[in-house]
Design a protein around this nucleic acid. Structure first.
Lengths: 157, 157
DNA sequence: CTATAAAGGTCAACAGTATTGACCTAATAC
DNA sequence: GTATTAGGTCAATACTGTTGACCTTTATAG
């Protein structure tokens, strides 16, 4: 096995350890708010697509509505998100962050941005671009990613 | 928010989607063997450090012995790993892959290597190096990663 | 030789995340 | 007026993991 193959062999380990480091700090912060990683994820995507519907959100996350229902309810109870009935179609519930929700999401995003920024700054901006390119290649095949892109394009109109 | 910050803002999404794509194919394969991702992870690390002890393995994975016990038992029952009492200290159980285990682990690793190789080949070897550098920066702070390095160094003697 | 420590195993209770399946309401579309 | 869509909810189950308690076997230190 040559050097390149040995490098590739370590990818599983890098993903395992890398993901753990990446989620560690936000996990600690949100714990104090009585929520978990799935709630963080939801806050994140609502921040990216304010006014997204429940159905569209679960398409992005690639989970069932049952998996989303309880976390959404908890976030609503904790006053981190609000659900607004759409006036063009009362069946739709549009999801938004509350002021509190915006503050928390911003705090969490900031922590994760800083963590990555520290690494990218020490390695150089080429590394940042390259890392994002590779992750994007993995992400772009996901139905959830494609759904996300669709939602973002909708917003621009 | 400038362009660089907006890039950094997408890191959570890239990790979420990227990790899902990365684990998708192996998850499908191992399902047919009646095992799951945690078992795959164990096979992987035993393949990297043949003869590792139970205690050292759980230090790498950063899980409790209770979390490791049942999966190890299942892998042993399925004849994918073997546990050998160390002759220098009968308290230690040294973990090895069986022939079947080696074949499965090799199959899974091959699938993941090929997936990454396809991406790296299309983007260039600089991308491969850069991606690994970034992931390594995240991974190296993990006690599990440090434990892993210690185990690898031990093997060389 | 005895006490202690280390490696490992196991049971129970619980939590977090997710699934499938079934069934319900309210609102819109044909 | 019926079918479809958006959303909610209950139940059962699966997977992964934790804490806490308690057990055996083996090695080591005094």
């Amino acid at each position: 096995m040559n050097e390149e193959e040995q490098q590739l062999n370590k990818v599983l380990m890098l993903f395992y350890f890398g993901y753990r480091t990446f989620t560690e700090k936000p996990d600690q912060i949100i714990e104090k708010y009585g929520i978990q990683r799935v709630h963080h994820r939801i806050l994140y995507f609502i921040a990216q697509v304010p006014g997204i519907t429940v159905n569209d959100l679960l398409s992005i996350l690639e989970v069932t509505k049952q998996a989303l229902n309880a976390p959404l309810r908890l976030l609503s109870e904790k006053n981190l998100i609000k659900m607004v009935q759409a006036d063009y179609d009362k069946r739709y519930k549009l999801l938004y962050l509350t002021e509190q929700g915006k503050q928390l999401e911003s705090k969490l995003s900031h922590v994760q941005r800083e963590q990555m920024k520290t690494i990218f700054d020490s390695l150089g901006s080429n590394h940042q671009k390259a890392w994002i390119d590779v992750m994007n290649a993995l992400a772009k095949v996901r139905p959830g990613q494609q759904q996300f892109n669709t939602q973002i394009n909708k917003q621009r109109h």
